[in-house]
Design a protein around this nucleic acid. Structure first.
Length: 337
DNA sequence: CCAATTTGACCAAG
DNA sequence: CTTGGTCAAATTGG
């Protein structure tokens, strides 16, 4: 199984695909993201000065640890549609008889299949407007309409699951309540298990996610890491055009993140400055795409976010997901301390 | 032609 | 029984 056409990291949702030869862009993206990572969480490496902006990520990032209850909403298969059809399982059943039902044939499946969440697995929940942007490559293996949710839930697993047996999985659901009143649907992304795969060319660098996970050790000392007992959240007002450093952190058990944590907020407020602004990735004059126009885009599914990182010297290094048109939804500026 | 997505069936946990 | 998670054939885009 080779990925000659691999999509950009996490890019398998609908319209995200269709990369031409953006391998380089992709790589670049990873680098930038890695930088971002460092800027945000200089835990292991000394922080560097400089500013970065990651569009899309802007919106909101709620993190929860442990087996938290996800609210739902999804990434329907709105984008590109490839295939899908009925499966003649019934026929199989007939041929094989009942034996298969609970017997032999099931054996193989039974071993691999793991219904529901395992108790031991780690789960992290993220609420964002750009569910695709996590630096990993995922392969969709299912979609399900959840009862309580308006939108279906998409199931992804790491593309290296087969190669390296990476257990990492994730589900993406579009929130129904957050509404599109502002053209930016949010998605709840639940990450199950951690990546055991080595990031090769096809696999992007573990970005924000991993970092955030480590919030317990370095990034957010305040945050309790006990699974299910705490959660941290970053939220930003994506609508206010100039609401920079409008962040809300929550470390309580509330899923909404209503409790403004102690100092975490302070620290991160300085790190984050989110603005509802659009950046064009191309240094060269890009088509004047009105921000407003962007909001009108109809996102049926998760979107991949472009990355904009500022160089230390002040110049902007813009990077966009491969094959993406020169525009972004919004951006978040990250200012390193 | 290959590989990723779609999508309904399957099936175990609650 | 209900519901959510997974499988895998079919399908299609590149």
């Amino acid at each position: 199984m080779q990925r000659s056409r691999g999509c950009a990291p996490g890019g398998e949702h609908g319209w995200a695909a269709a990369d031409g030869g953006g391998m380089q862009l992709q790589r670049r993206e990873r680098e930038l993201v890695a930088q971002l990572h460092e800027l945000l969480y200089p835990s292991t490496s000394p922080s560097r000065s400089g500013a970065s902006s990651c569009s899309g990520l802007a919106a909101e990032l709620y993190w929860e640890h442990g087996s938290s209850q996800v609210k739902a909403t999804a990434s329907c298969g709105g984008g590109k549609r490839r295939g899908g059809r009925k499966r003649a399982r019934e026929d199989e059943r007939h041929e094989e008889g009942q034996g298969q039902r609970a017997g032999a044939a099931t054996a193989t499946k039974a071993t691999t299949r793991c219904r529901r969440k395992k108790l031991g697995t780690t789960t992290r929940t993220l609420v964002t407007t750009v569910p695709d942007f996590d630096g990993y490559q995922w392969r969709k293996y299912g979609q399900k309409q959840i009862e309580a949710a308006m939108h279906p839930r998409s199931y992804y697993r790491c593309t290296n699951s087969t190669n390296q047996g990476c257990p990492a999985k994730r589900t993406v659901q579009r929130n129904d309540d957050d509404g599109n009143d502002n053209g930016r649907p949010k998605y709840t992304v639940v990450y199950i298990s951690e990546h055991s795969c080595k990031s090769t060319e096809s696999a992007a660098v573990p970005v924000i996610l991993e970092t955030t996970v480590r919030a317990d050790t370095a990034a957010a000392p305040d945050v309790d890491v006990v699974p299910g007992s705490s959660s941290s959240a970053i939220s930003s007002e994506t609508q206010s055009p100039a609401s920079s450093s409008d962040l809300t952190w929550s470390s309580g058990g509330s899923e909404d993140g209503a409790n403004p944590p102690p100092r975490a907020r302070d620290d991160y407020s300085r790190l984050f400055a989110i603005e509802d602004e659009c950046w064009w990735w191309n240094p060269s004059p890009a088509p004047a795409v009105a921000p407003a126009l962007l909001q009108e885009m109809d996102f049926d599914g998760p979107i991949r976010s472009p990355v904009h990182v500022a160089a230390a010297d002040g110049s902007w290094i813009n990077d966009l997901f491969v094959n993406e048109p020169p525009f972004v939804l919004n951006s978040c500026h990250l200012f390193a301390l």
